[in-house]
Design a protein around this nucleic acid. Structure first.
Length: 614
RNA sequence: GGUCCCGUAGCUCAGCUGGAUAGAGCAGCUGACUUCUAAUCAGCAGGCCGCAGGUUCGAAUCCUGCCGGGAUCGCCA
């Protein structure tokens, strides 16, 4: 039984014994004692005043004495107002520390035979990854690591939107204007290369549209369709889609391309494969830079027709219904959701149809009864509906679905807008943070004796830590402001700050030589700072469990930061290698080793690597 | 307009299953490196926790209403 459980149980027993009353475990508030008071854990006794009919101070004193008398782990206590502060014995803490010291994988639960799927990233193939994807990827990766830490077998998947009109635009632009160029010939990363043609298409299309607006045909449409009081510019802005679909030669070509693709026309399919393969090469490089990978990639070109069988099945079971025009719907008004279209009247699927199909497909592939979708919060409603439908279909995994919804990433100047060119490119950003780390490292000169390759590895770890920590420390649900200047900061509440605590420990350990763990046993009287550090280590597994339960990596990030901060202070205030005794030195080395391990394991859950030096 | 999310220091964020005097970082000012990596530490200053009610021994935290910002609302994904 853990110390927290022991104390909780002790309080329940104590109340029963002292006052003859039963207390619900939920009424016991047990929290780490605040720094300014003496003690390790604090019980709030206010809730017991009513049933004991005594003053809080009195109850605190009686309960404290009761616990001290009966529990070996509680050595003394003090009562301030309604707060009972309990002190845990040094022996207990020392034993616990030894356990952590010996356990390489402290905090990680043993494997259990249960699969857990996490879907994240899920890019389109018409443009490179950007800052928004980075938040998505980091969240998805961390959550998958969190559940691995709980012992699940996690399957990481992405679903790539590789089809549709967007990629056809790129294909068409390349065909018309590319002159056979390749990423190699152009010296550009594949995803950026293809992205350029998408942009080029949009540019050519805009030119075409503008010319049309001035033409007789365009002006005639304007005269016939403009609304009362609508300016010419406003009209054409609103008319853009219609123009693309009904008037534009380029639009016609792009749609024609899509039809050919759907018909499986060999040349079109070959071109499509070629361009997408360029994109995937580019994505893989970016994923590699970020240190993430997937077990399985699903392609929409394989899945976009799926789900129709589920719709038919739902119709038969009268979970769905058909309207007079032939379209198929589900009525979720009794779950405070709307009616939702599942199949168009021409029998073609919509996004929801496809998602139903892929959900079942993935269950058939992996049998995961729990599944997390990491998708931006603009799709909250979509997932509410999707999950509700799957429940009504009584899919076996329906109760294990979760939409990890996250807020948009804004810039200090406002929203990212592709049209205004303010989108922060993922590759550029990664290069930038690494460059910043490199500059700082050179100034310090601490890596001078390492080989260029080793230096580079450190600089990469530091730069990426800055970027990743900056993003992952924020609660997913919140919109966040990404300040590029602050994201490359290496000081303060940052990834490198946490790394630095680890590096300091490694440096001390290198100088210490072989550790005589036996000697630590002689260190009887722990300092308050040492007790505080051990108690923090003690909380680690619980932090992981809570972060996983809340699908919230930021809890781990904040924990790591707090631990690193506490250690930095300890390091500053107390000498380790020149401790007052051999026992103290051995103990502090042991403590430092354990802290380094938890920092490394914790940051690993966030996808952040620790350098040995920096 | 309906529904959902957010609102804490100048800025970026913790704290939210109710508990002690609301915490960090950045920015500003002051100090600490011949001593284990100063990417560090210590200090100063900075707050009607959006507003107003309610519940409670106790509210940043729970409930209601309002204000401000954002997302979304049947054939885009």
């Amino acid at each position: 039984m853990s110390i927290v459980q022991t104390l909780e149980q002790g309080v329940l027993d104590g109340i029963r014994d002292l006052y003859g009353k039963e207390v619900d475990a939920a009424q016991v508030t047990l929290s780490p004692t605040r720094k300014e008071f003496e003690g390790d854990y604090t019980v709030v006794v206010f809730p017991f005043t009513r049933l004991a009919r005594k003053k809080p101070e009195e109850i605190g004193a009686e309960l404290g004495q009761w616990l001290q008398d009966r529990l070996d782990t509680v050595t003394h206590f003090n009562v301030i107002k309604g707060f009972l502060n309990l002190s845990i014995s040094d022996a207990y803490w020392r034993r616990f520390l030894e356990d952590v010291y010996r356990d390489e994988s402290y905090g990680l639960q043993p494997a259990r035979d249960e699969r857990f799927m996490v879907e994240f990233s899920s890019p389109n193939t018409n443009k490179p990854l950007h800052l928004g994807h980075i938040r998505n990827i980091l969240l998805g990766w961390s959550v998958s690591r969190l559940f691995e830490a709980l012992g699940y077998e996690v399957v990481r998947v992405q679903i790539v939107n590789d089809r549709g009109i967007a990629i056809c635009k790129s294909m068409l632009a390349w065909q018309k204007f590319g002159r056979g160029a390749t990423p190699e010939s152009a010296g550009i990363k594949g995803d950026h290369f293809v992205g350029r043609y998408y942009v080029l298409f949009e540019q050519k299309f805009r030119e075409e549209y503008r010319a049309w607006q001035q033409s007789e045909a365009g002006q005639a449409v304007l005269r016939a369709n403009r609304k009362e009081g609508q300016g010419e510019e406003d009209f054409f802005k609103a008319f853009k889609n219609t123009y693309f679909n009904e008037h534009s030669p380029l639009g016609a070509e792009a749609r024609d391309m899509l039809l050919k693709w759907e018909a499986g026309e060999p040349d079109t399919v070959a071109l499509w494969k070629q361009m997408n393969s360029w994109v995937y090469e580019g994505f893989d490089q970016t994923y590699d830079q970020l240190g993430v990978d997937f077990h399985k990639t699903y392609y929409e070109s394989d899945t976009y027709l799926s789900g129709k069988d589920i719709v038919a099945e739902g119709l038969e079971r009268e979970i769905f219904f058909r309207k007079d025009d032939g379209s198929v719907w589900v009525d979720l008004t009794d779950a405070k959701l709307d009616e939702k279209l599942l199949l168009r009247r021409d029998g073609t699927s919509v996004y929801m149809t496809q998602d139903l199909g892929t959900a079942r497909m993935r269950y058939e592939d992996y049998g995961a009864r729990r599944m997390v979708y990491v998708v931006g919060d603009e799709q909250n409603y979509h997932f509410q509906v999707l999950f509700e439908i799957l429940k009504r279909l009584e899919e076996p995994y329906a109760d294990g679905l979760h939409h990890l919804s996250y807020g948009m990433v804004d810039l200090p100047t406002g929203k990212m807008k592709s049209r205004e060119g303010t989108v922060v490119d993922a590759d550029d950003l990664i290069a930038e943070v690494i460059e910043e780390a490199r500059k700082n490292s050179l100034e310090r000169g601490t890596l001078a004796d390492l080989s260029p390759e080793e230096q580079e590895a450190v600089v990469r770890k530091v730069g990426l830590a800055a970027l990743k920590f900056f993003i992952v420390k924020v609660h997913p649900q919140k919109r966040m402001v990404f300040n590029p200047r602050e994201s490359v900061d290496l000081q303060g509440q940052t990834g490198p700050y946490v790394q630095n605590a680890y590096v300091r420990i490694q440096s001390v350990l290198r100088k210490a030589g072989a550790l005589n763990a036996e000697a630590a046993t002689g260190y009887a009287q722990l300092l308050p700072d040492e007790r505080d550090l051990i108690a923090r280590l003690y909380a680690f597994p619980e932090v992981i469990a809570e972060a996983a339960a809340a699908y919230d990596p930021s809890e781990v990030a904040n924990y790591c930061y707090d631990l690193a901060k506490a250690y930095h202070k300890f390091y500053h205030d107390h000498s380790i290698l020149r401790a007052e005794s051999e026992a103290a030195k051995a103990f502090r080395l042991q403590l430092s080793t354990a802290i380094a391990r938890v920092l490394r394991n914790g940051m690993d859950l966030l996808g952040i690597d620790m350098p040995e030096r920096m």
